[in-house]
Simulated scan of single mutants.
Amino acid sequence: MTWINAVVQGLLLGGLYALFACGLSLMFGVMRIINLAHGGLAVLGAFLVWTISTQLNLSPFLALLPALPIMLIVGYLLQRTVLARSLRGGALFLCSPLSG
């Protein structure tokens, strides 16, 4: 039974990494912004779920119900304050000696 657990945990962790990669490629590909806070926000959301579930003795799935709107507000505020400001600054260009 332990190898089944290892396989399931490996698939779930791989799926989580795939979601993070999709989010980062979406941020850089569509918006042309390198958002290095993406992973930090995911960890903050997971910590918030853990805190809510341990403090209120809830299932982590039920703790998602209040955590998701809170993280939505945090993400929206980050978008409106930091990311929108950098979008107005112009596109990001890579500077290298070969680019002239």
Rank of each mutant, 00 (worst) to 15 (best):
S25E: 07
V7Q: 12
F61N: 09
I4K: 13
L48Y: 06
G14F: 15
L12Q: 11
S53Q: 07
W50V: 11
S86F: 04
N57R: 09
I73F: 13
L26K: 05
G14Q: 08
V8L: 15
L16T: 11
L72Q: 08
G75N: 05
L83G: 00
A42S: 10
F61S: 13
I33W: 04
L56A: 10
Q79R: 11
F47V: 11
Y76G: 11
V8N: 10
L24V: 15
L87V: 06
L26C: 09
T51S: 12
T81D: 04
L56P: 00
M71T: 06
T51L: 15
F28L: 12
L94T: 12
G90T: 07
A63M: 06
F20M: 15
A63C: 01
S96L: 09
R32I: 02
L92Y: 01
L64G: 14
A46Y: 03
F61P: 01
M71R: 01
L12M: 14
M71Y: 03
L65D: 00
G40M: 02
R85L: 07
V43F: 09
C22D: 01
V7W: 13
G100E: 09
L94C: 00
L41R: 03
A21L: 11
G15E: 03
F47Q: 07
V8D: 10
I4M: 12
R32H: 12
W50M: 09
Q79F: 14
N57S: 13
L77H: 01
R85S: 05
L13P: 06
A63D: 06
A67I: 05
H38R: 01
W50C: 09
R88L: 09
A67F: 07
L24I: 10
Y76A: 14
T54C: 03
L62D: 14
P60E: 03
Y17D: 01
G29P: 05
I73H: 02
L24G: 14
L16N: 06
F47P: 00
V8H: 07
H38I: 15
Q55F: 05
